[in-house]
Write a protein that binds this DNA or RNA. Structure first.
Length: 888
DNA sequence: GCTACAGCCA
DNA sequence: ACGTGGCTGTAGCT
């Protein structure tokens, strides 16, 4: 009997349920009767996805049965030291087994063996029957099973993404064949199973040895010839390695009493399945299941009408013709962008809900792509995460400079502190569209269905976009955020895209020199630290440092953390005052240098082929409305210390332009100005209008002295106080920061509020209003919802109150900066000087030599007039060859 | 792969 | 418990 068209899916139930249990928060998953369901939900969700994607003919889920395995018999400490499984976990396993069985899938367990052994055995059965086999397991030991016909599906992170580990993928990642993976694991060891390997040997070393000597027995035979410290360690640990090698072999000849045919995916029991899902209160999951298992969720049929998406594959000319009559288009693609270079192949366009055209951009001529760009330019484009799309398309010549809507941005404005803004989630939540669902009968409806799953995916996304955006745009309008959306966030997208595409030039050899220098400093400090205590210790390990400080040196205990006592910089400084132990200074010096080194190493890794660093701005991350920057983060480049500032010297003006320079322009005290404006405090407003030194002015009022009599100590107290207010600082916090008594801090705050009474009224009012309305608002009407203001948990409520104090101020500053960037970008369009970076209250422009005066004037004018407050907006401008030199 | 800690920025 | 908003690296654990 031939099974050549058959495929077998094997799943390690225990390891994946365990992952799901930890990936999904327990508190969000329980039924009205108190049954915890996070592991069930996560596992079944994952199962549905993989069944949908792989469509296997045969399936089995294996579970461990009890703890007593042959491995435990050989090695009493096998898997010892594992944290005890929380009590909520095991009851869920039984329910998972029930559901799996009701789905017509074989559940396999075998006393005395682990799930992995059952998987190995069934994998052999499948292979012998000529089937394609896929093994889904969270245990890396399964890698040894990979062959040309056996692929391991290994969960990437959480439970949603799977890595397809083919023999090639395993070789690429670990440098060894699947057959040798066992040997590699034996050498490196497995912490989760309490199987220590050879100390100091990681994947790289193990792979080197295995390659040199063929396999693990070969390595052990030639152990004598392996030099260095690691060779010695290997010889010292041969017994452990041999033990690991015996224990991590998966047995493929366990007597399961099953044949391949017994694993066929059967009909199951739809009635039972429905009842289980009802009992567990799974609704969305029931609908997703219905897609692959039509009988299972009949009752849900009317709440989730089957959606039809007509997807048609066309070439660019065909697409141009199709879209000619449409003004609004939804577009999605498989956009990617890394290290300054983007890619996109599959482009899906939709002009009405439920319909999409898909083109393969890789097969399109440059002229066709240019024509597509022109057609797009005349239409309003609705996208999801438009900036990524624009950047990826730019790399292949498809230039888009304007967008009509972005579902991610709209969803962000509506819920600015959501965990993610994935289209699937938004579509399901806002428009009841389930994008994870495959098409019912799509084969009949599609005129020319592309077999490639990617084109279906992007086609369905594009087809859903118009409807999803419609709903979101209405909600944005209902929340009075249309201006923020259409006049700020949307037009900012192409501006940011251009900044990211351009990137900032760096001096690579300068970076390398800094690494060398900081490394030397770190090594010297580490040595001095070791000398001070008489032995070596991992200075990067807070845990080991605690042993040194509090056990060996018997220093007084610092502030508690969850896992012990803090060793942070403030605590080290305090300890030094008390003990004067030199170790503390060397440790701090070590930390300073390694931190700088890491920063520079991180930067060097991100330099693209064009010698420039292209950061990515996140427009939907900060709950207040700020941008954030990542890969690398260019918004936290050191500036406070002299050595830190040297890192800013390597960010330079475009070296291709002779005589150019960088220009930095920043707002001075923008948050305090916004506080003055929003509170309407007459004294504070007057201070800004008079152009007084703010902190000296406030100091003179608070301490009742002349402005010239405010000494530096008074000034710094008041400065800390002013900034602290914006963040909801307490008297206790102020006392800690200024190292003064709580009473003194309290008195200081009272004095402050006596002089600036409107500020206090305003701060009180913000919280009160937020409590009543449920959200705070910025000057542009950007909202932040704070339901925790009503929490009965004190700590959560306090945090929400501080967030409420800060959000309108930080958020209004973000609004103003975004408005300024739009104006500056608009006026720089006709010049050759591009804007490169934004760091919250600062922008950096690469200035062509003949444009310096004009750019300087533009930036000052536009930033200064971006938004009219009751106080002036002061802008400082500086220029220089590097970011450091341009500081002022 | 996750959390905790530490530390950099506005 | 005690100041907001971010990102990244290492250690130590699953």
């Amino acid at each position: 009997m031939s099974h050549s068209n058959e495929s077998l899916l094997l799943i390690d139930g225990h390891s994946l349920a365990y992952r799901a249990f930890h990936a999904l928060p327990v508190e969000n998953f329980s039924t009205s009767t108190g049954q915890t369901t996070n592991a069930i939900y996560g596992f079944i969700s994952m199962l549905i996805n993989v069944l949908r994607d792989e469509a296997p003919s045969h399936v089995a889920v294996a579970f461990d049965l009890g703890r007593q395995t042959f491995r435990l018999e050989e090695y009493a400490d096998y898997k010892a030291g594992r944290a005890k499984t929380p009590p909520e976990f095991h009851p869920q396993i039984d329910l998972i087994k029930d559901i799996v069985t009701a789905m017509g899938i074989r559940v396999v367990t075998k006393e005395g063996f682990e799930a992995d052994d059952a998987l190995a055995t069934m994998s052999r059965l499948g292979t012998e029957a000529g089937a394609e086999v896929e093994v889904m397991s969270g245990d890396k030991d399964s890698f040894q099973l990979a062959t040309d016909t056996v692929t391991i599906l290994y969960p990437k992170r959480g439970v949603s993404d799977l890595n397809r580990m083919t023999p090639e993928a395993i070789e690429e990642k670990y440098g060894v064949t699947p057959a040798n993976y066992r040997g590699l694991a034996a050498l490196v060891g497995e912490k989760a199973d309490n199987l220590p390997g050879v100390p100091g040997v990681g994947d790289k070393t193990a792979a080197k040895w295995l390659t040199a000597h063929g396999d693990l027995p070969g390595v052990l035979e030639h152990a004598e010839e392996i030099g260095g410290k690691v060779g010695e360690k290997l010889r010292d640990h041969i017994a452990e390695v041999e033990r690991n090698y015996r224990l991590n072999r998966l047995l493929d000849d366990v007597d399961l009493g099953l044949s391949f045919d017994d694993l066929a995916w059967g009909e199951g029991d739809p009635t039972e399945l429905s009842s289980l899902f009802d009992q567990l209160e799974f609704q969305a999951l029931g609908r997703r299941l219905a897609a692959i298992f039509p009988d299972a969720a009949e009752s849900e049929a009317e709440t989730a009408p089957a959606r039809e998406t007509r997807i048609e594959t066309v070439d660019v000319d065909g697409l141009l013709e199709k879209i000619s009559a449409h003004d609004v288009l939804a577009v999605d693609s498989d956009a990617r962008f890394e290290l300054g270079h983007g890619e996109a192949r599959v482009l899906a366009v939709s002009a009405e809900p439920g319909q999409a055209w898909v083109v393969d951009l890789a097969e399109a001529a440059a002229s066709a792509i240019a024509a597509l760009g022109s057609a797009f330019a005349q239409r309003s484009l609705i996208l999801h995460s438009a900036k990524l799309q624009i950047k990826a398309w730019d790399s292949i010549g498809l230039k888009v400079r304007d967008i009509g809507g972005d579902t991610a941005l709209a969803a962000y404005l509506l819920v600015p502190d959501a965990r993610s803004y994935e289209l699937g989630q938004i579509a399901a939540d806002r428009a009841g569209i389930d994008l994870s669902e495959p098409e019912a009968d799509s084969g009949q409806l599609a005129l020319e269905l592309d077999s490639d799953a990617t084109s279906t995916t992007h086609g369905q996304r594009a087809a859903a976009l118009l409807e999803v955006h419609e709903v979101l745009a209405q909600a944005v309008d209902d929340a009075n955020m249309t201006e923020v959306y259409r006049a700020i966030e949307l037009p900012l997208v192409p501006v940011l895209a251009m900044m990211e595409l351009r990137g900032i030039a760096v001096d690579e050899s300068g970076l390398s020199e800094l690494i060398e220098e900081f490394t030397k400093q770190a090594e010297a400090s580490a040595q001095e630290a070791y000398d001070a205590i008489g032995h070596e210790v991992n200075l990067g390990s807070p845990k080991q440092l605690q042993t040194v400080l509090f056990d060996e040196l018997d220093m007084p205990k610092t502030k508690r953390t969850k896992t012990g006592y803090t060793t942070d910089a403030d605590a080290l400084a305090e300890l030094f005052v008390k003990t004067e132990h030199p170790f503390l200074q060397h440790l701090q010096a070590y930390r300073d240098s390694t931190k700088l080194k890491q920063t520079v190493v991180g930067l060097l890794k991100t330099v693209a082929d064009d010698g420039r660093i292209h950061t990515t701005y996140q427009q939907t991350v900060a709950a207040t409305g700020r941008l954030s920057s990542l890969d690398p983060n260019l918004q936290n480049i050191p500036v406070r210390t002299e050595s830190g500032r040297r890192i800013r010297e390597i960010f330079i003006a475009d070296p291709e332009v002779k005589g150019g320079c960088l220009l930095t322009a920043d707002y001075s005290q923008i948050e305090m100005r916004i506080m003055a404006h929003l509170s309407g405090d007459a004294a504070l407003i007057q201070a800004f209008k008079d152009g007084e030194d703010l902190h000296s002015y406030v100091g003179s009022k608070v301490f009742g002295v002349g402005i010239d009599e405010v000494d530096s100590e008074m000034r710094s107290k008041v400065k800390a106080m002013s900034y602290g207010l914006v963040y909801g600082l307490s008297a206790y916090g102020l006392s800690r920061q200024l190292a003064i008594g709580v009473d003194e801090a309290k008195a200081l705050m009272e004095q402050y509020f006596e002089r600036f009474g409107a500020v206090k009224d305003y701060l009180d009012e913000i919280v009160e209003q937020a409590r009543a309305k449920g959200y705070t608002e910025t000057i542009m009407g950007r909202r932040r919802y704070l339901p925790a203001l009503h929490s009965d948990r004190r700590q959560l409520r306090d945090m929400a109150e501080r967030a409420a104090l800060n959000a309108p101020i930080q958020g209004s500053a973000a609004d103003i900066m975004k408005l300024a960037m739009l104006k500056v970008a608009g006026r720089l369009e006709d010049l050759e000087s591009p804007m490169l970076l934004q760091v919250h209250d600062e922008i950096i422009v690469d200035v062509r030599p003949d444009e310096l005066d004009e750019v300087s004037a533009i930036v000052t004018e536009e930033m200064g007039s971006a938004y009219e407050l009751d106080v002036p907006l002061d802008v400082n401008v500086g220029t220089g060859i590097s970011w450091h030199a341009a500081a002022h």
